[in-house]
Each structure stands twice: as structure tokens, then as C-alpha cells.
């Protein structure tokens, strides 16, 4: 339990919730990151490409802003490598679009909207995540 961070995780979670509400209040949309990213891809022709791109740019710039403000470095350590990492990316992207959402769209926004569809999706991807880590680390 030495890495357990209840306070900063609660605070960061509240910031994520606030970001979702900002998008809802200003643009009337769900802050679903897979949806925002996928709609920039072919087959395209979806409106609001510039705002969507800027949302993703904000995600990429945020750690740099954090590092500049706090003086702490930002160097996330990858937990999978080579072909396995690429396979994971492929599955994450395909599954998120096939299921109409990911941790943000279903997990954060969907549960906040009390959507049963999103609750089902969240339970399923949590279960699949638990099982996968179990197989990778304990079997």
C-alpha cells in the first residue's frame, strides 16, 4: 500500500470531473477521449475538427505545464514493451470505438449521467482489466 494516494487521486479526479463539466457547459458534449480522437480519423467529415484537436493538444501539453509549475519531471514508465505494447494500443483503440466509449466517456461521464449502458460498459472493461492483469502477473 506504499503507493496509495487517496488525497491527490481524489483531487485529480475532481479536476477530471470539472473538465468534463466545462466541455458540457460550453460545447454541450461528453468528454469522451476515444470519441474525440476517433472522430478526427477517416472516414472523417465530422464537424469541429479544430476544437477536437485542441482538446487532445491540451492533454499532451498538460504534463509539460505541470512539470514547469512544480519542477518535477514527467516520464511515465511503460509497463508493456515492443509488440505487446502495440497490440495493447490496437485493442484499446478498437475496443473503445466498438463499445462507443472508454474510461472517460463511459466511466466518468456515463456514470455521472447515471447511464445503465455506461455502467455495463464500465463493469465489463474493469472486469476484463482485472482478469488480464491476473493472467499476466499471477498465472
Amino acid at each position: 500500500m506504499d503507493h496509495f494516494t487517496p488525497l491527490s487521486s481524489l483531487l485529480g479526479g475532481a479536476m477530471i470531473g470539472a473538465a468534463a463539466l466545462l466541455l458540457l457547459a460550453g460545447a454541450g458534449r461528453i468528454a469522451g477521449i476515444s470519441g474525440i480522437a476517433a472522430r478526427l480519423l477517416p472516414p472523417g467529415g465530422v464537424a469541429d475538427a479544430l476544437p477536437r484537436f485542441l482538446f487532445l493538444l491540451g492533454l499532451v501539453l498538460a504534463p509539460l505545464l505541470y512539470a514547469a509549475a512544480t519542477g518535477r519531471g514527467f516520464a511515465p514508465v511503460m509497463q508493456a514493451h515492443g509488440p505487446l505494447l502495440l497490440l495493447a494500443g490496437l485493442l484499446v483503440g478498437f475496443g473503445a470505438v466498438w463499445g462507443n466509449g472508454c474510461t472517460s466517456g463511459h466511466g466518468v461521464c456515463g456514470l455521472s449521467r447515471l447511464s445503465v449502458r455506461s455502467l455495463v460498459a464500465t463493469v465489463v472493461f474493469m472486469a476484463a482489466g482485472f482478469l488480464t492483469v491476473w493472467v499476466m502477473r499471477h498465472v
Binding site: I33, S34, F74, P76, M78, V92, F125, A127, G129
Partner: peptide, 30 residues
């Protein structure tokens, strides 16, 4: 079926790498 199959596939990828789409984009900053 898609709301069951999609998250199943997504969850496996998530469990393999520990990355979902949001943290994947922030990881680019590294």
C-alpha cells in the same frame, strides 16, 4: 452486443499496458 464486446476488448488492452486513451495522450509529453 457491441456494448459488451467493445469494453471486453478495450479492457484487455488496458490491462496489458495500463494505458487508456487519456493517459496515452498525456504519455506523449514524456
Amino acid at each position: 452486443s457491441r456494448i459488451l464486446l467493445g469494453p471486453s476488448i478495450f479492457g484487455v488492452g488496458w490491462g496489458l499496458a495500463g494505458l487508456c486513451p487519456g493517459p496515452a495522450f498525456t504519455a506523449l509529453a514524456g
